[in-house]
Nucleic acid binder design. Sequence first.
DNA 1: ATTTTTAGTGTGTGCGCACACATTTTTTAG
DNA 2: CTAAAAAATGTGTGCGCACACACTAAAAAT
Lengths: 362, 362
Amino acid sequence: MAKKKILRIKDIAKAAGVSVGTVDRVLHKRGKVSDKALKKINAILTKNEYKPNLIARTLGSNKSYKIAALLPNPQQDPYWSIAYQGIIQAETEWSHYGLRVVSCVFDLLKKESFKETAERVLKQKPDGILIAPIFYNETLPYFKLFYKKGIPYVLFNTNITESNGLSFIGQDLYQSGRVAAELICLGQQGKATFGVLHVDEDLNDSVHLLEKERGFKDFIKENYKGDSSIESLNRTSSSDFSFKKRLAALLNKTDLKGVFVSSSKGTATAATFLKSHGKDGIRLVGYDLLEKNIEYLKSGAIDFLIHQKPQQQAFEGISSLANHLIFKKDPPSINLFPLEVITRQNMGSYLIERPHSISIPE
Amino acid sequence: MAKKKILRIKDIAKAAGVSVGTVDRVLHKRGKVSDKALKKINAILTKNEYKPNLIARTLGSNKSYKIAALLPNPQQDPYWSIAYQGIIQAETEWSHYGLRVVSCVFDLLKKESFKETAERVLKQKPDGILIAPIFYNETLPYFKLFYKKGIPYVLFNTNITESNGLSFIGQDLYQSGRVAAELICLGQQGKATFGVLHVDEDLNDSVHLLEKERGFKDFIKENYKGDSSIESLNRTSSSDFSFKKRLAALLNKTDLKGVFVSSSKGTATAATFLKSHGKDGIRLVGYDLLEKNIEYLKSGAIDFLIHQKPQQQAFEGISSLANHLIFKKDPPSINLFPLEVITRQNMGSYLIERPHSISIPE
DNA sequence: ATTTTTAGTGTGTGCGCACACATTTTTTAG
DNA sequence: CTAAAAAATGTGTGCGCACACACTAAAAAT
């Protein structure tokens, strides 16, 4: 029943026979402190494990931080619209602690637009950056710039391992593809063809989509019982005729047993195709709880969705930066979200609004 | 670009031409305030939506709260052991804000033990109670007592709708059963028998298990393509011979297509049975990421687990009470967790330690 | 008309910390 | 041996809020 007394700076000072100012200097490594005092204070510190009261800390220092969020235009794609909501939410919840978020959006399909927007971000001179690095080659030089300028940055959605950022928030995409394959194979057997669809994204730079495909293929090769072939189709735009033809051919295969779509928006598109071809019995696995996807899942056209939690990713991204700046508390360098499987029966439980507020460390 | 100024009590006071004391009285409904001042302040309040700075609030009031946690003995069952970890974690994370948690554990199988422990809880005179009300009839009178004494209490794991508690944290059990059924039916057809196993729990009071069974049966009746029958078995103790015989009979049925176990510990038990009967090809659906369950899921004996998140439930339970007491911020009266489906392929993503810290409201 | 009551209001302090500034002590220079 | 510079340490203030307390003015009682 030892009443666990919490150690304040004041207590340390008294114990060391110095003033709070000296302790403060030791804690923050500022100013000069005599060897004697330093040793005495450090001894007490290590022995008693001082933990600053973060609440008091933020209250006192009334600083204000600006974070720039660099992501695709939310109006172009419902997925990014949901991510954007997470940013807005994080901003409102952190606003009390002197945090502002400036969102800078670029055209999902134009690398040039990305570059311009990245420049705009730099002009803002933000204290931190949240970035969705969907263009691999274009992003790399900016990481270097951020680093040189000493601006902490957090990646979300897509990882670039050599980024050296403060943190990455997202999912294991390879494993995500494996989960999709597992769900497609479940209870199926015999000679089979599976389709992989990439819809409206530039595959050249979309490492993330290819990772999913790789996981998908690997799993099927390793686990599918029976002969299997996998056909990968890539739609470059909504008026891509060659895609339409190849898709029709794929859907006509009698041994087509499942289709995997690598993006959330594409999932609804694919469901529409399947339905219009009268093939909505084919097992379809895609991504995310977009409105349309929810409808198709309900109606049975979609069988499984893997939840990428774009909103939470963005929210945690902002929160990571906020904690770093305000509380000087660093996030883990990799924050991998679970690969949540959505079915007709558990969908409802995911649509409930859940309390969701900012986390402060310690 | 309107610089969103944050409204402090001081600002309100100035705007209303009164002192901070008067505003404080209005905000906390204490003391007397003239009609004129009241109206003026309220006008400003509703117009500008004042949000107190919770950080400052906690800093000032240096109170200390005691929460009692009333749950089954963690050593009896790994499920409750995980829940207990959530309590410990919540306690350490909240300890800085003057929160202590006293855990009071009872025998999972003895109603008398529950009563005794509940009495012990009351003697503690806690400021809040977290309770796992697994015994329906025995718990009800205590809810009344808590209420009469004005002690806020939060339920988790099992809901008792007429409880009138501050909040319930858990899952929709009926729907949980439906998810299990959905997973069992997936890709299966033809004449089938399904088994429902309840292991080592007193079914008379276990509303929660029966709810799961009801959901399971309903789904199959509504959705299974083909004749189906469902057999429900209930093991009362590990030496229940009648159960063993009936189980053996069930496992010998050639049309047995799936087994659903209603509890987490039971899931591993059932997997062992299936394996020893050479029937681990039968689809098995159970609950939670217990160590044994993880092993069986890996090896293929278990096909799906539904994740009840006992640790998070307990953690959020304590957090709800803490927010209520410290920040005077009430949780939603029902906090339903999603029904997360664990498979071989996504299991890994659930086993990663994720950052998880306390949330403060606003 | 003076005292007492009370409705209404204002002021002051502290929570733990950061940081600017004031003060003391020690060292170095002249 | 004093003056100036440098090093080390101490003091004070404010962050936004809660709450105890002090205070004023008007109403009620004597």
